[in-house]
């Protein structure tokens, strides 16, 4: 049985330059060789999509059942936005070597305390 979870502290709306903290936890069938948490954004919509990992934290000696904290300083851009042609979203994901699925939690990065609507 595989269980993975990502939790963000302080809600799901953050301002550019703020620090985002949270916890990740997992329970796996066996001890993983590696585990990391990544801060990323991606676009979605019509045409070519884009994505970028802005930062990552690799956990030392991950256990079969584990619980770790993370902390990232958010960049000043790009902001989260949504439109009919393209959407940009931010997220934090837990990526464990040998586990096909990733567990992610999305959040909004915006100076206006909400997603920008185009």
């Amino acid at each position: 049985m595989t269980m993975m979870n990502v939790q963000l502290d302080g809600g799901t709306i953050f301002k550019p330059g703020e620090t985002i903290t949270g916890q990740v936890s997992w329970y796996l069938d066996k001890r993983p060789k590696a585990a990391r948490v990544r801060l990323f954004w991606y676009t979605m919509g019509k045409g070519t999509e884009d994505s970028q990992v802005e930062d990552q934290l690799v956990f030392d000696k991950p256990m079969q059942q584990d619980n770790r904290s993370f902390k990232f300083k958010l960049p000043v851009a790009p902001y989260s936005f949504s439109g009919t042609l393209i959407t940009l979203r931010w997220g934090v994901e837990l990526d464990i070597k040998g586990v096909k699925e990733v567990c992610a939690k999305e959040f909004v990065l915006s100076p206006f305390e909400k997603e920008i609507v185009l």
Binding site: M44, G45, K46, T48, E49, T84, I86, T87
Partner: peptide, 12 residues
């Protein structure tokens, strides 16, 4: 409809 809800977005 927003891009992330569009069933014909590129990733789908």
């Amino acid at each position: 409809m927003k891009a992330h809800d569009n069933p014909f977005a590129s990733r789908y």
